[in-house]
Design a protein around this nucleic acid. Structure first.
Length: 109
DNA sequence: GTGGTGACGACAC
DNA sequence: GGTGTCGCCACCA
């Protein structure tokens, strides 16, 4: 089942995101080889919602650093977690997103 | 079986 | 440069 592989890979990558860093769905999708299907990354995260904190999904945002998934994460929890890690969030968007961006295909090797 | 939808992204206009 | 449209693939009604 390739879905499970994809699912596991998404979880693994998200777990490897360093504290105080964030990445994008597209970056994860590209790292997994499904760059055109960034929605699948969101799908995987959405289906892993009942999962424990093993998956810091709050560090995953869209390509512009917008916290589009905060409503699925439980309200303002996502922004607060990011702020608690030293990431500035304003109006559901990450400030200096480029500075906090973490690309798995580059830094993970 | 078909159509609509979604934690997105890229391109066209 | 903002808006619109399509692609992508799995899930749900």
């Amino acid at each position: 089942m390739t879905q499970e592989i994809f699912f596991e890979n998404v979880i693994e990558v998200v777990k490897l995101i360093p504290k105080g860093r964030v990445t994008s769905y597209g970056a994860i999708a590209a790292y997994l080889g499904t760059k055109s299907s960034s929605r699948m990354v969101g799908w995987a995260l959405n289906h892993s919602h009942p999962n424990p904190i093993d998956m810091p999904a709050h560090r995953v945002v869209n390509r512009i650093g917008l916290l589009t998934g905060k409503r699925n994460f439980g309200g303002e929890r996502m922004a607060e977690l990011l702020i608690a890690e030293g990431i500035l969030v304003e109006n559901d968007q990450i400030i200096n997103f480029n500075k906090h961006f973490w690309d798995p295909s580059i830094e993970l090797i």
